[in-house]
Design a protein around this nucleic acid. Structure first.
Lengths: 157, 157
DNA sequence: TATTGTTATACTCTATAACTATA
DNA sequence: TATAGTTATAGAGTATAACAATA
């Protein structure tokens, strides 16, 4: 480890000042957890008027894609247990945003697709999410956001 | 948005292939959530033999620092509700890893400090966490890790 | 009157195991 | 025998509100 003693980026904050000096502040996992906590709180707030949460948003997004994922695909891609996917899709289906269709070639698998109403809600949700993201990432330039995306992508898959 | 249609970084994975084409894959919040899910799962696994979870590890880390944070400081820094901090510290105190000491200047506040045993356990935990981190970040060079840390730090605070 | 820590409650997320229907 | 989806359950994480002690 290069440098365990780091200055807080926000010395005006008394809470930051008091915990300054901990090596936690250079711990990528801690930083990721903190950014996730802030980000998903903001995203859930932005999605609340649409009756969605981030999980539902993620599944709806994939169901709006051109690929028509199975429930298993969704579980793997979203790092969820298949049983959790069931609950999210039950929820989205009850709201009329997605549909399950049995794959005729293998009747065990369900293909998940967005309804027209689902696509319309997703379009609104994207706008809401983008606004929240702009708020969260306002300190980063466009280039820095691209770099961050690229690095996270390499770690994520 | 520059380019919503992106190729999966891992075309060999059938799940990735099927959901490929979704704009979710360029969504920083989604990537952060996925990296966090993978990272905290790995970290919790690495900490399990020590009887810790990531939350307890974070509080213990700060309690081992030179600053002696109050419970309020911990809540703000870790983005936890003060009532959640109570539960984590109860847990760590029951294991003899940290102690609460009343601030003589303001008897409402508790200062949280690691015990000698807590410092010893923390030293072991750091090693375990570092090994898990090496696994999670093996695709990134040292320079890239530093860049990722710096960018996350700017978003986190 | 405001703040620190605390208790209580409810809801969401996560992890696991067992079951069914298909293959 | 193995896989996709489902049900059930328990434990951890998250969000709120109310309270006692202290300032």
């Amino acid at each position: 480890m290069a440098d365990a003693r780091v200055t807080s980026p926000n010395p005006g904050n008394p809470a930051d000042a008091r915990v300054d000096g901990s090596d936690l502040i250079t711990d990528i996992e801690f930083l990721v957890a903190r950014v996730r906590a802030l980000g998903s709180r903001a995203a859930n707030g932005a999605l609340a008027p649409l009756g969605l949460r981030v999980r539902q948003y993620a599944v709806l997004s994939l169901a709006c894609g051109s690929i028509s994922p199975t429930q298993r695909d969704l579980a793997e891609f979203l790092e969820l247990d298949p049983s959790q996917v069931v609950a999210v899709i039950d929820d989205l289906q009850a709201s009329g945003l997605v549909e399950r269709t049995q794959d005729p070639r293998d009747r065990r698998v369900n293909i998940v697709q967005a309804t027209p109403h689902g696509r319309s809600v997703y379009a609104e949700a994207r706008v809401a999410i983008a606004a929240a993201r702009e708020q969260s990432l306002h300190k980063l330039t466009t280039e820095e956001r691209a770099t961050l995306t690229e690095l996270l992508l390499r770690v994520a898959f």
